[in-house]
Design a protein around this nucleic acid. Structure first.
Lengths: 157, 157
DNA sequence: CCTCCTGTTGCAAATGATATTCAGTTAGCT
DNA sequence: AGCTAACTGAATATCATTTGCAACAGGAGG
């Protein structure tokens, strides 16, 4: 199973960096894996402690998320206002995001051509890219639909 | 002059939204225009109060930046960790950014094709885009050069 | 020019996300 | 088992940003 493999690699990563293998860290990975691909830390903390408050404190969750970021299993994918939305990457190929500012829905997409063009731009500026983030904010189809309905209702009323 | 025009439009904007025309607001615009295209608010606050502490308090700067965002003269262009870097747009055409994670240099670029591909993606998902942000983090040519030099020095030593 | 009402300002205090400190606990080498 | 460095939870600190509030200032109407 993929998740097990990831945990093994993470274990290696911890050892190599002089960290210890603790139950808590792996329980947090399980929780994140069960939570869904996108999360905010505070949200995750609440969710975890609602289920089982013996797993980990807020600090440990923050610390573990940091480690998982260094390890590369988690990425900051959306920054909106003071909110940071993380993604459990776990070997998924790179991609970008559409974010509905009305309902918060997140749609993933990947366009090879966009990636290539970015590389080209970097070359043109002798810039060595490390990572990037493309966020497109807007209204998803459901919310647009919903707006139309509301407008119709207003007209009737 | 372009800046004067912007101020006039902003004055209109204020009137239309039931706000008042105050000296402070326009002094802040002047300061931002003089500061350079990219800034962080705290940095700006310090800079302003070093020059002339009678211009505006921290709160007023924050509030004015918000207004200018609503008006459209300012955009949040880079989010890195807990830092937010704003850009004084002032009629400049849309563009994206390369950010050097070593020295903080910001390079602007624009690629028509990338914009078009984004529109295409949005269409494919029946998504109505409102705005977007593409941040490419990496190492600029100067910093790469500097690293090489340091390595050379280490070798000599 | 005065008056009144509403929006604005500055300050201090509140907020919210995240980081850190510290004392007690545990992993894991010997 | 014993030791030491890393880990944990709780409380506290920090940093950017926002808000409450009392004093103040635009600007419409007289």
């Amino acid at each position: 199973m993929q998740l097990e493999e990831l945990k093994q690699k993470f274990e290696q990563f911890l050892r190599q960096n002089g960290h210890k293998i603790t139950k808590g860290r792996f329980e947090i990975i399980d929780k994140i894996a069960n939570y869904g691909p996108h999360f905010e830390i505070e949200e995750l903390v609440r969710w975890i402690s609602n289920q089982d408050r013996s797993i980990a404190s807020r600090s440990t969750v923050y610390r573990t998320v940091r480690l998982l970021q260094e390890f590369g299993a988690i990425r900051e994918v959306i920054k909106l206002g003071n909110r940071t939305i993380y993604e459990f990457v776990a070997g998924k190929p790179h991609h970008e995001h559409l974010i509905c500012v009305e309902c918060g829905k997140i749609i993933e997409f990947y366009k090879e051509e966009i990636e290539n063009l970015q590389d080209k731009v970097c070359e043109e500026h002798s810039f060595t890219p490390i990572n990037h983030r493309l966020e497109i904010f807007g209204i998803c189809s459901d919310c647009k639909e919903r707006r139309h309905e509301n407008r119709r209702m207003e007209v009737r009323a």
